[in-house]
């Protein structure tokens, strides 16, 4: 199992831009927003938590269709499905690799982008914490969407359509945590609910994803 994770990470590094692409997209979103809403620091500070969370979510979405597509095309997915490790574990490792190459860089870089958007000082901690807790759910849910659309020629747009409504609760609790954190309110409830979503998704969704892969390989 670890071998699969290492291989995916190695592929992401070798392919060049595996780590960078999502991050660059996140940067673009963060830079474009002030052009759209105007440069007033007050406005930016108010919307920063939401923008940062939406940007992270879109950056995650961007790389989802590559989770299984390449392995499907070159036959690796067939071979992984017949390998001794259960497909549920394969799917989990794929999601973990996606998080390490996309989610984790976002978590690390988000405070930097927070500076660009005048995120109030109290928000930085909560931004990092909420993204660290929430992005694994984004990767696991996205892996489920990718598993559903793996056999399709032009699955990219469909994948976004399927995954976006599933992202709603994660986004709401994640952004709410940061908003409350910046306002000095109690962040416990949204943060715990966010952690709950992540824990439940990580525990249960791999079964659905593996089932979808099996159907798609038939």
């Amino acid at each position: 199992m670890i071998a699969l994770l290492l291989r995916d990470l190695r592929l992401a590094v070798r392919a060049g831009g595996g780590f960078g692409l999502g991050l660059a997209f996140f940067l673009i979103v963060t830079v474009l927003v002030p052009f759209g809403v105007g440069p007033e620091g007050g406005t930016l500070a108010r919307i920063a938590p939401g923008i940062l969370w939406v940007g992270a979510l879109l950056a995650c979405l961007l790389s989802l269709d590559r989770i299984f597509a390449l392995d499907f095309e070159d036959g690796s997915l067939d071979l992984l499905a017949t390998a001794p490790i259960p497909l549920e574990a394969v799917v989990t490792m794929k999601a973990a690799a996606h998080w390490l190459t996309t989610g984790l860089p976002l978590v690390i870089a988000a405070p930097l982008f927070g500076v660009l958007l005048h995120l109030p000082g109290a928000g930085f901690f909560w931004l990092t914490v909420s993204l660290a807790l929430g992005t694994p759910a984004l990767s696991v849910i996205g892996t489920f969407g990718a598993a559903l659309t793996v056999g399709l020629k032009r699955g990219g747009l469909l994948l976004s359509l399927l995954v976006l409504p599933l992202y709603v609760p994660t986004l709401i609790f994640g952004a709410e945590t940061v908003r409350r954190g910046t306002a000095g309110l109690e962040t416990g409830p949204p943060l715990l609910l966010l952690a709950g979503i992540t824990a439940a998704s990580v525990a249960l969704l791999p079964f659905a994803s593996a089932a979808a892969i099996r159907v798609n390989l038939r």
């Binding site: 409504p165 709603v168 609760p169 709401i172 609790f173």
Partner: peptide, 13 residues
């Protein structure tokens, strides 16, 4: 499952 979850999330929000 996620639709029910969203229902409670937006209530919260």
């Amino acid at each position: 499952v996620f639709a029910v979850l969203s229902r409670y999330a937006v209530n919260f929000w």
